[in-house]
């Protein structure tokens, strides 16, 4: 068996080294080697977008990227956008707008939304639908997801106005409302 390959990259701001087989996808590495299980596998061929992560700021289907390709790259996963007990405004809007039912597609949608709003803070409904058309949701019919993205855009831009920085929190997060715990 061929030797594993050593890869160095940055994941959610932290430098990370890992070993992987040449044939392993980034999704496999994230989930099975590094325990970032927030990215989900729905199809393993780039059709559903449930495994979306940001690679140097751009949304990618991590099932279509090889682990060895991320040498030197910066990766952001769903685990990396909420910190210090605060949800990211996009996560908060998805909750308040009931934009998820089963939730399996949600991490991918949130990452695609983040990529969209990072590059286009005030997208039209059509632009949102176009940018999210690589993420499949079978439960919601998309209505509440689109509204959550619209509300996220408003929340993020309101943060700019109020705080003078990008949002209420330095990194674009706002305080979560009371979160009941469920198991």
């Amino acid at each position: 068996m061929a030797k594993k390959i050593h890869v160095t990259s940055t994941i959610n701001g932290e430098p990370i080294e890992f070993l992987c087989d040449a044939r392993q996808s980034l999704l496999e590495v994230l989930r099975d080697t590094l325990d970032f299980t927030g990215a989900k596998e729905g199809c393993n061929n780039g059709n559903c977008g449930a495994c979306t992560v940001l690679l140097d700021g751009l949304p990618v289907d991590s099932c279509l990227v090889l682990g060895v390709e991320v040498e030197g790259a910066k990766i952001t996963t769903i685990e990396g956008i909420a910190r210090e007990a605060h949800l990211h405004p996009i996560q908060q809007c998805f909750l308040e707008d009931a934009a998820l039912q089963c939730g399996i597609c949600t991490p991918g949608f949130i990452m695609s939304t983040k990529a969209l709003l990072d590059s286009n803070p005030n997208p039209s409904e059509h632009e949102i639908r176009f940018q999210l058309s690589g993420n499949l949701c079978r439960c919601t019919g998309y209505d509440k997801i689109i509204r959550a993205v619209q509300d996220s855009a408003k929340a993020l831009s309101a943060g700019v106005e109020r705080g003078g920085t990008k949002a209420t929190q330095p990194d674009g997060r706002r305080a979560a409302k009371k979160q009941p715990q469920a198991r």
Partner: peptide, 20 residues
């Protein structure tokens, strides 16, 4: 329309699905 009880787990990627 309260926020669902399992919401935070599902928007942070922490919820444990079968493959997790």
């Amino acid at each position: 329309r309260p926020i669902r009880h399992d919401g935070a787990d599902k928007v942070t990627g922490r919820a444990i699905y079968g493959s997790d």
